[in-house]
Amino acid sequence: MVVNKNPVEIVAVIGPKGGVGKTSISANLAISLAQLGKKVVAIDLDLGASNLNTFLGIRSSKYTLDDFILNKVGKLQEIVLETGLENMGFICGGNIPGIANLHYSKKMKLIRNLAMLDYDFVLLDLGAGASYNVVDFVIISQKSLLVTTPEIPSILNTYSFLKTLVFRRLTMALKEFHNQTLLDLLEQARDVEKNPHLKRMDDLVQVIQKIDSSASRLVKQILLGIRPAMILNRIRSGKDEKACVAIENLMRQYLGIECSKILHVHEDASVGHAIAKMKPVMINNPGSVFANDINEIAMFLTG
């Protein structure tokens, strides 16, 4: 076995609104990275509603995440399945009832094991919504890819997700200061209707500065570190492409964060054809528009 010298890069793929094509992108992105010669493992962490295997054309699996969560195996590496593709492994999602509300200790065990996997990229296909289980996996990831479509409901969900992410991360950091006033302030800032004076991140940082300047420095530092990439999926016109600009403006003003990159995936019938055949697009139609867009995202990840 080739020893992997570089530390593993964990990439979270999130589609805050269900049905935006997140899993299709995850599956094909993992293949694209593998085709670029990177060692990749795709993990279905859409807990309770996993179906990444379908998009990869895997109909049944010997092991699932349940085996790891229920301690049937000791290490995550043991449940990595072969995909038949060079450089690429896959961990099938679990189906234990209640898995979507993964217990803290189980979550931590999973997170520790993710970092120990011997791959260049660990691609996490996360569930919809903005539960802490989803958000926490984004926080521990080196890169996160937010998948949205140009429709308003999808954009709104993406913004809500980012807001939860930012406040969760800030709460974690400010807890270290053992200052209840700071935590209360964060709580108030979440409710923009009741506390309009705290609705912009700059306003909030200023108030924190007055309470504890070192805390405000930390907040700024954390905000600089939250730089998700946005994938705008199912684009059908130049006008669609602009949808992300609107959300970027809101992110900057109200959440104090920037997108690291906006990536485009165009509407392409080859996706539906591939799903119907239970084959990934990268295999079924590697020359398609969709495949090209996915390759662009893979290039972005490999830097």
Binding site: S160, K239, I247, N249, L250
Partner: peptide
């Protein structure tokens, strides 16, 4: 939809 229109819709939805 232009960007301004969309942004304004989003602000309204998000009560910003």
């Amino acid at each position: 939809l232009d960007i301004e229109h969309l942004e304004s819709d989003l602000r309204q939805y998000l009560k910003l």
